[in-house]
């Protein structure tokens, strides 16, 4: 995943390699333009930001809740702020960042709509990656077991899950429209393959590149 894909147009390859062991990182790594300013919300130990800084020359910033993860991120030279993203972006001026990344985090936030709103206040573009709760295995698990679904994608027992707001591809598209967001690109993944057909049923992970519709920068 070293070639920079243009934002629109060219046909992407059907096979997605791992970046740092993750497919959604590979897609994010492709989307982010060199030299841009990036904020990663829920950045964990800062692996993606470190990669983006080293390979794309981005100005990287991160927010992470866990002290231990923040320590490891700072230890690898990434500027990370220990804090809660549900209320922690208020200090950033409008449109500070070229991209705000929300990778596998939206479903863990208390106020997803507020987070989405804030990320497109402080950032020109948002990159949102999340596990698709509409995947057929999740549906099947619930239908057959009659219990909160437990799958490869959602491996936690309901009482241990960090995920508190489950969403599907359709759900995200709906919320994006409600928030006045324009989807610039969408990627759907099942394993290492890109999904082009029935993504709400077949995609395990979705990655959206969104921006605020012109004239709706409130």
């Amino acid at each position: 995943m070293s070639v920079q894909a243009p934002h629109l147009g060219s046909k992407p390859p059907a096979f997605v390699h791992d970046l740092l062991g993750r497919r959604d990182y590979a897609i994010i790594g492709d989307i982010v333009a060199p030299g841009s300013q990036v904020l990663d919300l829920g950045c964990g130990e800062g692996e993606l930001l470190e990669w983006l800084a080293a390979n794309k020359g981005v100005k990287a910033r991160g927010v992470e809740k866990s002290s231990a993860r923040v320590q490891r991120a700072i230890g690898r030279g990434v500027s990370v702020f220990q804090g809660d993203i549900d209320g922690g972006l208020a200090d950033y001026p409008d449109q500070t960042f070229d991209y705000v990344i929300l990778s596998q985090t939206l479903q863990e936030t208390v106020y997803p709509r507020k987070v989405l709103h804030e990320m497109l206040r402080v950032g020109k573009r948002g990159i949102v990656a999340f596990p698709n709760f509409g995947h057929w295995r999740v549906r099947l698990s619930m239908l057959t077991s009659g219990r909160a679904p437990c799958t490869k994608l959602f491996p936690y027992a309901w009482y241990e899950s960090p995920n508190i707001h489950f969403l599907t591809v359709f759900d995200f598209e709906e919320l994006a429209a409600l928030e006045g967001l324009q989807v610039e690109r969408r990627y759907f993944l099942a394993g290492h393959r890109k999904v082009t057909f029935l993504p709400n049923l077949l995609a395990e992970v979705a990655v959206f590149l969104v921006t605020r519709e012109r004239g709706r920068r409130d």
């Binding site: 002290s67 700072i74 990434v78 500027s79 990370v80 702020f81 804090g83 200090d91 950033y92 001026p93």
Partner: peptide
């Protein structure tokens, strides 16, 4: 410390912050 960090962030300064246990 958080007050300091927030003010620095509002100026888009390069700032890392952690509260150690």
């Amino acid at each position: 410390s958080q007050e300091t960090v927030r003010a620095l962030r509002s100026r888009n300064c390069d700032v890392a912050y952690v509260e150690l246990e």
